[in-house]
Design a protein around this nucleic acid. Sequence first.
DNA 1: TATTGTTATACTCTATAACTATA
DNA 2: TATAGTTATAGAGTATAACAATA
Lengths: 168, 168
Amino acid sequence: MEIAANTKEIKKERNGIKGLQLQNNGAIDYGVLPQTLGYLLRRSQIMLFQHYAATVGKMEITPGQEGLLILISSNPGISQTALAKAAGIERSTLGEVIVYLEKRELVERKSSTQDRRSYALYLSASGEKFLSQTIALDREHETEITSHLTAEETKTLTQLLQKLLNQP
Amino acid sequence: MEIAANTKEIKKERNGIKGLQLQNNGAIDYGVLPQTLGYLLRRSQIMLFQHYAATVGKMEITPGQEGLLILISSNPGISQTALAKAAGIERSTLGEVIVYLEKRELVERKSSTQDRRSYALYLSASGEKFLSQTIALDREHETEITSHLTAEETKTLTQLLQKLLNQP
DNA sequence: TATTGTTATACTCTATAACTATA
DNA sequence: TATAGTTATAGAGTATAACAATA
């Protein structure tokens, strides 16, 4: 499988050298893209997501779902509306995910005693355990993905992204 | 419109204070999320995309389409397959976008003389002009989005993202 | 046989709007 | 009247697989 993929790559590059009309002799010029914050963020996020899927994804979870579990764990009893707002998604979008996480017995919904329209969300005991394992895998994943940065650089990157996000 | 939105916000928060079952008195605890690179990247990208849509988006363009224009401009005569590979998307996905950009007369496709299966892609004169305007707006947009970072911090952030992406 | 570009199809993620039950 | 959560539907954006023309 791996050998075949390599062969294919080599063939593609060989073809690229003679196949293209002008100066595209295999090396692509990315123009201003690598200087563009939007491009760098987009590509970084894609790369991270793919690595996440191949590592933390073993737990059958996505970054968005892990985020919800963290928010519920940190805010036991939160309502779906409040959770949707915190997660930055619509209530209708959240609803389906919560049903899914409930079916997996990671999340429990209890009818609120004060407002019978709303649910209070909690992690089950197995949900908490699952989340701990997921967070541990996530840490490994992020360590791997930043392995060619120094600890100092990773810290700086984290801080700068936090600052970028906290629009005053 | 703005007043209504504000009223709504205030009502929601007031409700949140008495409406929730446990300690969710309006303030959400984000747990480990703000320390997580994946979360920070995802949120940053969403924020940037929304700001882009509200500014550069006036040109009726998306970040992905702008990226394609930049790649074509920097690699005149590139084939669709090579462009798809450079942009990190599938040939079939690229095809539709190219047809769209061709209809807008920003991109021209010429049949390759050497390989009659493939097209050589170019920007039209108006495509080049359009791209210049788009890139100028994009620079404004990125300046705005990073206005609360120092020039030094923005440069560092850019460099660290480049380093993160160039997995050795 | 392999590759270029196209087409048909489907999947994921998300949003909007209408609904119900409660407030 | 307004809100919590659900449902139905639709729209991006993407991928996979099969195809015709060409290599």
